[in-house]
Amino acid sequence: MAKATKTKRASVTVRGPHKMPVHLFVNRQDYELHVEPRRTLLDALRKDLGLTGAKKVCDEGTCGACTVIVDGKPVYSCLTLAIECEEKSIETIEALAQDGKLHALQQAFIEEDAYQCGFCTPGQIMSLKALLDENPNPTLDDVKRAVSGNLCRCGAYPKIFRAGLRAAEILRSKKGA
């Protein structure tokens, strides 16, 4: 391998290990938290902001119940450090209903009975929200793939698929109207 020319190191800021201020932009609101670097986005949302919609199930990126949308993409908030989310836009299930009116996905989940215990539901909905934001005309296969990173132990999948398609329909008809 070739030698790289070494330049002087730029100055860097070390943060932590103790609690320090972290700025988050969640559901169109600014927050300042005081947390350690090891605070995950999931714990920050749940414990520091009281947004308990995203669930802790495995805490290691193997279930999808903690799914939130960061800069438009669904991600696992348990494998995301809060400190690395500054200057990002974070969207959680709590922001979906607007002015007391349910989002089409929420409405469709109720109508189709697309849940049983409901613990995975916020994650499922956020995955589908990201899909519908990007693709207003999803096929059944698109819907299935969109929630393929969200486990449902009760087995509500068939109805989740139906709810995803139905929500897309509701949104399209709203746009058309």
């Binding site: 070494k6 730029a10 860097v12 943060r15 932590g16 670097p37 450090l81």
Partner: peptide
Amino acid sequence: MRNFEHITPPDLESAVDLL
């Protein structure tokens, strides 16, 4: 997880240096 320090380096060079 145990706690740690966290650094966001400004460039690649600082990153490998820190490592």
